[in-house]
Simulated scan of single mutants.
Amino acid sequence: MTTILTAGDHFVSNSLFRDRLRPVVPDATVRELTLPWPVEPFGDVAEVHEASGTEDQLIEALDGVEICVTQMAPLTERILKASPDLRLFCVSRGGPVNANLEAATRQGVAVTFAPGRNAGATAEHTVALMLAAARRVPATHTDLTAGTWRGDYYMYDKVGPELAGSIVGIVGHGAVGSRVARIVSGFGAQVLVADPFATAAGVAPYELTDLDDLMRRATFVTVHARATADTAGLLSRRRIELMPPGGVLVNCARGSLVDYDAVCDALDAGRLFGAAFDVYPVEPLPADSRLLTTPNLVLTPHLAGASRQTALNAAAIVAAEVDRYLTGRPLHHCANPQALADGPTAS
Rank of each mutant, 00 (worst) to 15 (best):
L303C: 08
L340V: 09
T231N: 10
E124P: 02
H10M: 13
D213C: 11
I170G: 09
V91M: 03
M155P: 03
G305H: 00
D19V: 07
L144P: 07
F42I: 12
L257F: 04
I170R: 10
P41M: 14
L285Y: 11
L249W: 05
A110L: 15
R20K: 11
T327E: 10
P38M: 13
A194Q: 08
H332G: 11
N336F: 12
A204Y: 12
E32S: 03
L208Q: 07
A304F: 07
E241R: 12
L62N: 00
G8I: 01
R238I: 05
D56A: 15
G343V: 13
A229M: 14
I167L: 14
G64K: 03
G305R: 00
A311Y: 02
R135I: 12
R329V: 03
A320C: 09
G116E: 05
A335W: 00
D157N: 10
T199S: 11
L340Y: 07
S13C: 08
E66S: 09
A269Y: 02
L35H: 01
D19K: 09
L144W: 14
E321K: 08
A306T: 14
T142C: 12
A110E: 15
T142A: 15
E77C: 05
R237C: 11
L303H: 05
H49S: 11
G328K: 14
L192F: 09
A311S: 08
M215T: 02
D342R: 15
A175C: 01
V30G: 00
A99Y: 01
A287P: 06
L292A: 10
S52V: 00
D259S: 04
R20T: 07
L5D: 04
P115M: 14
A341N: 13
L75R: 10
E321L: 11
I170D: 09
D63E: 15
V176C: 02
D9K: 01
R308H: 15
L235Y: 10
R216Q: 02
L326Y: 01
E40K: 00
A262Q: 11
P23V: 07
R237G: 13
V193Q: 01
H141V: 09
H302W: 01
P23C: 09
P26K: 15
F273K: 13
G172Q: 03
P330S: 07
L101F: 07
T29D: 12
R329C: 04
L340E: 10
P84M: 04
G274Q: 00
P196K: 06
P244D: 08
F197Q: 11
Y153T: 06
F277E: 02
Q107M: 13
V168M: 08
R290C: 13
A61N: 13
G53R: 12
P26R: 15
F17Q: 04
L144G: 07
A61V: 13
V223P: 05
T2E: 10
D210S: 07
V12R: 01
